[in-house]
């Protein structure tokens, strides 16, 4: 389970950081075409392919040999970055244009506008979608088994194959994932409720 959590937290940390960076580049009109291309390619290709390229093809292409955990974290992080960037884009576009204009008319500089006016509203708007992304990423970590990673899913398969008993190990793995998802949902709901309370107070 720790391996799964490491993959999830590592992946989401890279995904959110890179996703925010991609959004900033897009909205500052820097490298718009490469950012769009990146998002398009990542969303347009299977995660299993991206993971395979990083783990199997990178050593021959770039001479970089990564262990399973860093390869997984990077692959899940890069994949997540495109989705996070899209979530943030939808969040920014859902704000009225007038919020940007109001900031401009008050002479608020761009950095402060984004930091104090736009992002706090965007974070509130996209929070449920971000929780969804974390849950999706958690379940996608099961793909680590294709490069030999021993996560919960892979372990349950091995136990099942050894004991010729599939139902119980797979059910236990399923229960683990379900409990983790319920926990993420619980934390997400609490944060969301707190944000709503702050807004209503």
């Amino acid at each position: 389970m720790i391996f799964t959590l490491q993959l999830m937290f590592g992946g989401i940390a890279i995904g959110v950081t890179l996703g925010v960076l991609l959004s900033v580049l897009r909205y500052c009109r820097i490298c718009v075409a490469p950012v769009k291309g990146w998002v398009s390619i990542i969303r347009g290709t299977p995660l299993i392919l991206q993971l395979s390229i990083i783990y199997f093809a990178a050593p021959t292409m770039a001479g970089i040999r990564l262990d399973m955990l860093p390869a997984g974290v990077i692959a899940f992080g890069l994949n997540s970055s495109a989705y996070v960037a899209e979530i943030l884009r939808s969040g920014v576009e859902s704000l009225p244009k007038g919020q940007f204009e109001a900031a401009r008319t008050l002479g608020i500089p761009a950095f402060h506008m984004w930091k104090d006016i736009i992002l706090p509203q965007v974070v509130r708007n996209v929070f449920p979608a971000m929780v969804n992304e974390i849950i999706a990423l958690l379940k996608e970590t099961t793909l680590i088994s294709i490069i030999g990673g021993m996560d919960m899913m892979r372990r349950s398969q091995i136990i099942a194959a050894e004991q010729f008993e599939y139902f119980t190990p797979l059910c236990i793995a399923g229960a683990y994932y379900y409990c983790l998802v319920l926990f993420i949902e619980f934390i997400g709901r609490r944060i969301e409720r707190r944000m709503v309370n702050d807004k209503n107070s």
Binding site: P96, Q99, A102, G107, I108, R124, K199
Partner: peptide, 22 residues
């Protein structure tokens, strides 16, 4: 100074914060 038709107050700030932020 500009007053918008739909006010465009910053919803996550109090009235006072809206006034003093800029």
């Amino acid at each position: 100074g500009f007053m918008f038709q739909d006010f465009q107050l910053f919803p996550h700030m109090t009235v006072l914060e809206n006034l003093v932020y800029a």
